[in-house]
Write a protein that binds this DNA or RNA. Structure first.
Lengths: 137, 137
DNA sequence: CTTGACCCTGTAGTGACTACAGGGTCCATG
DNA sequence: CATGGACCCTGTAGTCACTACAGGGTCAAG
């Protein structure tokens, strides 16, 4: 288990399902530590980078913001600390997701009501346009 | 019906619940036509602007993109045309909202499962961190 | 030694605003 | 008539999380 499992950026991208540009972006914003460079100035990633990037991608898939992920990664480093702070971040995110779902469902209802009124006539008698305009001139 | 009900940008903002900067932004991107200017170079809005901006805001509240709104406004101008194209835009938007709701609900479930595993111990045995990391090193 | 896939940096674009900075205008007071 | 403060102007940069170039350099196969 020596240097044989080191990856260049393309291999890391493939291994994690991330675009190359996105990996460079995570480095720029300090989420992924800058890796060693090869003689030709190529980024050379180790196992630890793969783990960290997988963590980031999984958290992104779950809708955490990069700031939240940064906080989670910081917390994860302090192995002896209580994980209540981690739990809090996850709960806050869950609350936000719940709010978004509720908002979208309310919006969906309005939209559905709008569409169900369409009589497929001309625009001048279009209920959708009417409903959007407050007092047509 | 003379010039007495013309508005400056602040009054239009108040009347429509829009920020002044947002109104200027809509003008810049061609959603709201550039109004006449006063002697002191202030924007001077007429009734038509109020109607159009109200339409834009209402459509935004319903989650339509500015591109979609642009299309709706274009269609609304052609009073004799069939409103099927309007209906189509609205239906496509509804489908997108449905997809977003489904995505968020799936995400919500995963997140909920994650959180319910928290035993409030130390980070080193944190299920949330574990679930995010694929194979901790 | 050339080809083509890969890598590098740096900058600009996305959507829909928001937030200044650094000025000008208007109007009601004193 | 001067002053103060609320309003308005333009232009630019910032937000979030990337994405997409442009214009180069590196590397391995043939």
């Amino acid at each position: 288990m020596a240097a044989e499992n080191s990856l260049n950026i393309g291999a890391l991208a493939k291994a994690t399902g991330t675009k190359v540009e996105t990996i460079r972006w995570y480095e720029r914003v300090g989420l992924l530590p800058a890796p060693a460079r090869s003689a030709g100035n190529y980024r050379t990633y180790a196992e630890a980078h793969l783990g960290r990037l997988s963590f980031i991608r999984r958290a992104r898939d779950l809708g955490f913001s990069l700031d939240q992920i940064r906080a989670l990664l910081d917390l994860a480093e302090d192995r002896d600390r209580s994980c209540d702070a981690v739990d809090l971040i996850a709960r806050e995110h869950l609350d936000e997701v719940d709010r978004k779902i509720a908002d979208l469902q309310a919006l969906r209802q309005e939209l559905d009501a709008l569409i169900s009124q369409c009589r497929h006539g001309s625009v001048s008698e279009c209920r959708i346009i009417e409903a959007l305009a407050p007092s047509a001139g």
